[in-house]
Nucleic acid binder design. Structure first.
Lengths: 142, 142
DNA sequence: TTATATGCAAACAATTTGCATCCTG
DNA sequence: CAGGATGCAAATTGTTTGCATATAA
């Protein structure tokens, strides 16, 4: 969050209570929240906060590289804090649970692939889809 | 496409001219088309085809496992033929070009990661984002 | 013949935008 | 004090649905 203030200030963007609140919520909740979940949580502290401000702030934070937008198999986007730790996601198709994982191999492979195709790779998204242990049981049970 | 007919027939679904047309377009164009691009192309042969039929057909083909839905960094979905060859995508952030690649390593790594987290992996999506050779030049030029 | 598909228009949901007002710098 | 940020309502965009009609099996 201090990071966030600095990033904002650095770009000549204003630090407002709304922006700080939204940033804090994304951090505290550990990520993977949709815009309206963020809105709902934020309104507990700032009831007049509008959904458009949430979207505008998310757009800003994305530009600043503080947040990244995730689009799983749902009809909306989720957002997470973006730190120096590159990670990917394991998503349960049964219950929607999301697990983060890191993979040094992946990073290397991706870079090699980029070279091979003459691409300068700036980012990667890896989503593994499947069923978590509980959902596997539940499905067998049927 | 013959495959498609069989799949449809097998599930007791009807084979209509619209469905054949849409399936053919996705195959011929090589994939990565959005719903309205498919609609636009299809209307050249069948001017009364409605966008809802396109969506309904895409949904059906997805269920049958003939087509998969891709969601890149855009605001809409793209669709591609889904064969036995598992592949992933390299997407140029400059011009939107999409290159498919295969990666045996990835598949293994993904399966191992699934095991490690107690997940039964049923699918994976890997997107590498960056700039293609031409777009790199264009950007340097600025 | 009869259930399934289609076309059209209307409904939806997520996200974006215009504009008057507010507030940070 | 001035220009960027907010709230609200209205507009957009991609996708889905209800229903009368058309058509594959």
């Amino acid at each position: 969050m201090i990071n966030g203030r600095q990033a904002l200030r650095f770009r000549g963007k204003r630090i407002t209570s709304q922006r700080e609140l939204i940033l804090r919520i994304i951090q505290e909740q550990g990520g993977h929240l949709g815009a309206d979940e963020i809105h709902r949580l934020a309104r507990r502290e700032c009831p007049r906060l509008s959904l458009s401000t949430v979207y505008r702030t998310l757009g800003l934070l994305k530009e600043l590289g503080l947040v990244r937008e995730l689009r799983f198999e749902e009809g909306y986007s989720r957002y997470e804090m973006l730190g120096p730790d590159k990670h990917h996601h394991l998503v349960c198709l049964g219950c929607g649970k999301v697990i983060e994982f890191q993979c040094a191999h992946c990073a290397r492979i991706h870079r090699d692939l980029g070279d091979h195709h003459g691409f300068q790779i700036t980012g990667s998204r890896v989503e593994l889809l499947g069923y978590c242990a509980e959902c596997q049981k539940r499905r067998e049970g049927r």
